[in-house]
Write a protein that binds this DNA or RNA. Structure first.
Lengths: 159, 159
DNA sequence: ATTTTATGTCAGTCATGTTGACTTATCTAT
DNA sequence: ATAGATAAGTCAACATGACTGACATAAAAT
């Protein structure tokens, strides 16, 4: 049961390797979100706004409940940031053509502009890391992260 | 300048690949922190407590200012969670033997026990992801995350 | 003796999450 | 046609974890 104690444990599964993985994720995620956070602060927005802009940008016409499923937060939490984004003209809501209870979400030109800016700072960091690591490493990076997330979300990445 | 428009752009640097990287990090990090968060909630602790327990566990005798440098938060923020952990007997503070202004931090047996529990849930997720991806993928994963973080923190991982 | 450093504390604010209760409009099924 | 379910929104209260700014104490360094 405890791989830790069995001598046959492959190197990459040893305790200190796992410990390093935990810290790698902590430091990389902290820096990955740091630059966008600075940019968002200029708009008096936070990371929650970023996530909404990102997923609406990626899925134009997404409904509120679909967005809630992705973000895994309550509608009250979403309501606050989404309300701000709509009031300030970053996101537009249109009634669903089939089901008129739905509010389909889309970025406005202003919202798209912010989305582009946010993407650009993250793109630069990722491109640098990808270039320095090479195509093969990138495939490994993708595989490990995919296997680390809950199974039902992995489908988003199948092609 | 814009690699996006040049046709010579390698596959793994294309816009949609970078976009996927952003989402991979979001979903993987969300699930990576989800289980520890549930465990911590039983103690009325949050993610901030986890980080303190983790880094004190990894660096017994660390000083408050060293911890602040790693976490990149203010001492007032640290003070609240550290104070709780000390009052509730998870961390012990001892005056520095050389510089008596310092408070060297160590986990108590109780703190070590929680650290072990937290490590175990994260270990299981990482081991699963590592096993399913293989040793080569793990090397790529490490490389990309290392190159994604700020340079001065990379030294922690050099061996 | 003075200044700097390590740590801690008080007070107030902000962003982002939570629970619970309730409303309105609209769709679905009997 | 009506009853119930669903999509979305709102009000209120609360917790966590970040922030700024001001100030206090003890010990080290100059």
């Amino acid at each position: 049961m405890t791989d830790i104690k069995s001598g046959t444990n492959p190197l990459f599964l040893r305790t200190d390797e796992i410990m390093q993985a935990i810290e790698l994720l902590f430091f990389a995620y902290r820096d990955f979100t740091g630059e966008p956070d600075e940019l968002l602060a200029e708009y008096n927005f936070g990371r929650a706004h970023h996530r909404v802009i990102h997923f609406v940008g990626r899925h134009p016409g997404i409904t509120v409940s679909e967005l809630l499923l992705i973000l895994r937060i309550t509608k009250q939490s979403l309501s606050r940031v989404l309300g701000q984004l709509v009031r300030e003209g970053f996101i537009r809501q249109t009634p669903g053509p089939v089901d008129r209870r739905q509010r389909l979400l889309k970025l406005t030109a202003k919202g798209q502009e912010l989305d582009d800016k946010l993407f650009e700072v993250q793109r630069q960091r990722i491109v640098r890391a990808y270039k320095e690591s090479g195509a093969e490493a990138v495939a490994g990076f993708r595989s490990v992260l995919l296997n680390m997330m809950e199974e039902n979300d992995r489908q988003r990445f199948s092609r």
